[in-house]
Design a binder for these strands. Structure first.
Lengths: 351, 351
DNA sequence: ATGCTCTGCTAAATCATTTTAGCTGCGCCG
DNA sequence: CGGCGCAGCTAAAATGATTTAGCAGAGCAT
């Protein structure tokens, strides 16, 4: 790999100047007194030889690698990881940096290993990412360089990047209220564990907070709140069946994420109820599935790409301590409509 | 980052030996004549100082970085990328290597940039990945070190890792035949572009080949073949509606991927037909959605994690030129049953 | 006594860069 | 005529490892 590349010495020789001169010209050093002609010659020589500096040598001297570490707990189990990484990749490229990626799988030994591997390679900074928004303790080993938490907060006030779940919840509920839904809004996805323990989730309490505040401001209460052990389709399905067995039926439900909403869709489909005519559904995340559902699901999108980008910007350009919130854009699709007048009756979709 | 680490010189000094001795001991060099006591002292000193070698310095000398490049066209748009990366990450870690990740977004300029960035950093090898199985020309710049194609083949016979789509198709169709489906099997997802142009897809023709061969061996023909402009849910939905408007109705459909199958599920749900009682459905990929559908979708899983792993194994351990096929395990869920006796009638799911 | 081999170790070169310190020659001032 | 400053450049050190070449001393044979 990278056989016989031209070195700085080659460039200098071809330009008829010293390595010092070549180095200074190529690095665009200010305040050097090298002649315009010297500049010309160096550039020409570098061009002719296709010179590219050897990063290993440069790093050895400068202790900079133009490389930043992206260490995450789990990349595979969530399909959002890709977006986080893409955003980080883009921002890194714009600043001529490159990403060294590792994964800890939540395992302490792997984490130690990963951190050491990064440190050995003299990364210029670290993005420490969690795939579900939660609280993370930064291993002390990486303090000493810039560290930014992505999708996580830390006990000590470190810069971090988070989705603005609370604002998203506000937007979602306001959309429902704007369509005329009032006292028959139900919530699917309450979860004591997620809401109570910041090690588990930051998102859950924020979403709940936003929902409650907005409803309270409009002086309406929730018709029902369904607890779910996990935020998976099967739980959304069960919750929706349960809601449908009760009276009165909700005119709208907000689901804590799209997978729950998907389960809710399934239950509604089986019950022969139409979305949004019989029941409106809104949710969080903008999982790809949200666009595939029929009708498309209105949901607040996790801005993963922008978050990834922001994280490396904070690492490279520096940033204030504490959280930096990225807004979650509302994707308006077809799952919201005004509640039907009177008591809605089950109806069949066309065959 | 990585402030004042102990250097080899420090270790040597503490051990009361030369750098040469320390280096040789720590690298476990054979054939050196250093005493057992010298070994002891070096290890003790390294331990005491928490010595870790500086990779930049080492790479400068050895031209090895214990780093491999993972360059892909697009990571974000597919949720499988995560699995590919995870597999690669695992294999890399096992061999004490680390992954430098970049993305070309299919853009030639970005690709050039990415390749140069990798080469500047003296990566030991390159995994060149496409997110949809297709043909890729390896940029000549990276020849000279090991290059393995992931999810892609190249015109020149380079080592590459591919899912075994053909075998998967065989398994899927055999599962249908085993349940007694014969002449009323339909296919959703024919696509001339994908089937005809290896730059676009390798998977499509392989899947089609497997399906046809298996049916031919059992001496049965396809009831219908639906062409789809893309492999998205809406196209699967339309195709299934079309199939249902015809007579006789299929007893089973094989979809070219899970997103098409999802669309087919939607159409069947709306038509009030039950899976698998009225129609069996099988498909390819094992998208997360396959497990979320009701009933779970029987599908041949893209073995992305194993593929990612295999690719870095080939880079590091060397491997024969040409394709290395990774089997696609069949995920048997609830979407397949024996065809109903007689003419199936529309039926309603319980409300 | 000389030379040879073997053991156990080390000095110094090397890798490709950045950076510090300083050199050379010229013009100018006093 | 001596010294000073400046323009334009360079030699050499430094970064932290690996590796080549070889040294000092002991043992042994001649």
């Amino acid at each position: 790999m990278g056989r016989n590349r031209a070195t700085l010495a080659d460039v200098a020789r071809l330009a008829g100047l010293s390595k010092t001169a070549a180095s200074m010209v190529l690095n665009g050093r200010e305040g050097t007194r090298l002649s315009a002609e010297a500049h010309q010659r160096v550039f020409a020589a570098a061009e002719e030889l296709g010179y590219r500096p050897n990063m290993a040598a440069r790093s050895l001297r400068t202790r900079k690698t133009a490389t930043i570490a992206f260490v995450s707990d789990i990349v595979a189990t969530t399909r959002f990881a890709g977006d986080l990484i893409r955003g980080a990749l883009d921002a890194a490229r714009e600043r001529d940096h490159v990403l060294l990626i590792t994964e800890t799988q939540g395992d302490a030994a792997f984490e130690r290993y990963a951190i050491e591997a990064m440190l050995d390679r003299q990364v210029d900074g670290v993005v420490y990412a969690a795939m579900a928004t939660r609280r993370l303790t930064v291993p002390p080993a990486i303090l000493g360089g810039p560290v930014v938490l992505l999708n996580a907060v830390s006990p000590d006030e470190r810069p971090c990047v988070l989705p603005d779940d609370e604002q998203a919840a506000v937007a979602l509920v306001e959309a429902l209220l704007a369509h005329g839904h009032r006292d028959r809004i139900a919530l699917i996805g309450r979860n004591r564990l997620k809401e109570g323990d910041p090690e588990v989730s930051i998102a859950a309490p924020a979403r709940l907070r936003g929902i409650r505040a907005t409803l309270a401001a409009a002086d309406v209460g929730l018709l029902a709140e369904c607890f779910c052990a996990e935020w998976l389709p099967e739980h959304g399905y069960a919750a929706m069946r349960n809601l449908l067995s009760r009276s009165p039926r909700p005119t709208a439900v907000v689901c804590m994420n799209d997978r729950l909403a998907f389960g809710a869709y399934q239950a509604l489909g089986e019950a022969g109820l139409a979305i949004p005519e019989d029941i409106s559904v809104v949710s969080f995340d903008d999982d790809p599935i949200a666009a595939w559902l029929r009708p498309g699901l209105t949901t607040a999108a996790l801005p993963h790409e922008r978050m990834g980008r922001r994280a490396v910007e904070l690492v490279l350009d520096g940033g204030d301590a504490g959280p930096s919130y990225v807004p979650m854009p509302l994707r308006r699709r077809r799952s919201v409509a005004a509640p039907a007048a009177g008591v809605p009756a089950p109806r069949r979709a066309p065959a």
